[in-house]
Design a protein around this nucleic acid. Structure first.
Lengths: 173, 173
DNA sequence: AAGAGTACGTCAGTGTTGTTGACATTCCAA
DNA sequence: TTGGAATGTCAACAACACTGACGTACTCTT
């Protein structure tokens, strides 16, 4: 009961080599996610530290760049935070001249969000850093590993988020 | 310059199929990490919500369970936060009777940390939830994908954290 | 034209989690 | 035994999430 956890899934029935589903394997995966996510955010965090921004600003900038003209509501769904929380971030980005907010043409209640040149500048800096690490990891692991990596991550998302992810992947709108 | 980013790595030289290193592929990986991490923490977060605890408490409980008798300093290095931040979390866990802190025998400055029965109970509940999602993802993706998944994640960690990860993996202390 | 509903912004209050700074205790080595 | 290093604790503060309530502007339905 101490360290060795009940290992209820080792070689259950069938002869299908389900060893990769043991609790030990799963725990390794959990810890790998934890440590890897730290590395994943470390480089952008260092850049943001100098400025008055945080991870929340990075996320907003990333997705506005990804889907220019997106509405506040849209962004809200993607980021999964409250509008009050997002608003605080957007307010600073807009007043600092990194993001521009335009009133909708069809529906004037909506605000469409765009990066300014300055905003794109910061986005580049951040995503260059993040891509560099991702590229190194991809290169070290090889193409097949990358396929598996993405497969597992997609299966780990909440279904609605799988939707957001796929939609972004396909259309970019 | 809007959506389609400069794609400086497509089929560079050699004939080695480096298509998996395009900026587009990297960006997909980045977004996959973002959405997947949300799913990864969602289930434990829901459980913690009811109690007065957060993600930091979960992390502490996880690694104390993983390495019983670990010192505060040890835990500090693994978690990558300041000792003051960890201390607040430990204080509530100890006063709530989930964690026990014993003064070191050799070095009385050190505190060795253990889960109580109650602490182990919560740990089980949390890790059951997290493992269930991980298991579903693993099963959906298949064994080869899992190998690739872990490979990429390990390459993404900071080197020091690779150390912590491997050490945990091998010895379990 | 009136009323209901939607999209966005804001104010106020709260909780978790990170930070720095100051400080007490303990150990070890000069 | 004294000074420095290691370890852990307390206090105050900042970032960023949350809820709840409200105001404004606009759209859609009847």
């Amino acid at each position: 009961m101490g360290l060795d956890m009940a290992d209820g899934h080792r070689s259950s029935s069938g002869g299908e080599s389900l060893l990769f589903l043991t609790d030990e394997q799963l725990r390794k995966g959990i810890e790998a996610m934890f440590f890897a996510y730290r590395g994943f955010t470390a480089d952008p965090d260092r850049i943001l530290d100098g400025l008055a921004y945080g991870r929340a600003h990075h996320r907003a900038i990333h997705f506005i760049n990804r889907a220019p003209g997106t509405t506040v509501n849209n962004l809200l769904n993607i980021l999964g935070v409250t509008k009050q929380s997002l608003n605080r971030v957007l307010r600073t980005l807009i007043s600092d001249g990194l993001v521009q907010s335009r009133v909708g043409r069809n529906d004037k209640r909506e605000r469409h969000l765009f990066l300014t040149d300055e905003g794109r500048g910061l986005e580049q800096k951040l995503s260059d850093a993040q891509r560099a690490r991702m590229r190194a990891a991809y290169r070290a692991a090889g193409p097949e590993a990358v396929t598996g990596f993405r497969k597992v991550l997609e299966a780990m998302m909440d279904p609605e988020m799988q939707g957001s992810y796929t939609r972004l992947k396909e259309t970019g709108q």
